[in-house]
Nucleic acid binder design. Structure first.
Lengths: 117, 117
DNA sequence: CGGTATCCTGTAAGATACTG
DNA sequence: CAGTATCTTACAGGATACCG
């Protein structure tokens, strides 16, 4: 089964295809926060310390172009821009949740190890 | 629930932590092939066209350092080096499989769209 | 067979400043 | 508030050649 990897149309393994879409230092985390609810730009930013405005903007735009999130601009002053998962993005939910669970367990393991010192 | 993201020990969201470990252009695919069985270096290489020896070597070593795979060197001539998932790496299986399924569905959708033209 | 050793290039990410 | 506009830099990835 795992051998039907390469010979797809584009010669890419589906695993590679999937990972490419969330490749970007902050994309996974951004998607994670959007699992909960629609968020405004600065709301996302506040949840991701260390990301710069420029980088976050770009990554969100790429997610939008790839059809994973929907960006809605409200013609108001001051401007309001909301981001939410698209239907396609919703299908990523189990994966994002699985990553969160895995990462959480991984961290717990790290802590145990350091305490065993 | 999704708000307990930042305030972990290292300030990183678990999603970010998990993604960092499989961040590397070919790591996900390499792990995918190792789901099936233990593979020798060139066996992995053959399954991943376009990856250079140098890069594949480095990514496998990083996976090893992160405890996701186990590298075994047999003192033979010619040399034989086998790679297999570690117990920790095994815990990634559901995620890798989910990525494969997702990527496969995504590609199918792309094809449908292009045919609708 | 399974690597190193060099060298090179593109680009993702970051810092900083400005804007409708 | 939610962005652009510039500029800079590190480094992942790749090409090529050689080795025990």
């Amino acid at each position: 089964m795992t051998d039907d990897c390469p010979p797809t149309t584009d010669g890419k393994c589906p695993v590679e295809t999937a990972l490419e879409l969330i490749d970007g230092k902050w994309k996974g985390v951004a998607l994670f926060h959007l699992l909960d609810k629609t968020l405004r730009f600065n709301e996302i930013r506040r949840r991701i310390p260390n990301v710069t405005q420029r980088v976050l903007t770009r990554q969100l735009r790429e997610l939008e172009q790839d059809g994973l999130i929907i960006r809605t601009v409200y013609a108001e002053v001051p401007p309001r821009v909301e981001y939410r998962l698209s239907p396609l993005g919703e299908t990523l939910r189990p994966i994002i949740v699985a990553l969160w669970n895995w990462g959480t367990a991984y961290k717990a393991r790290q802590i145990e190890e350091s305490e065993a010192a």
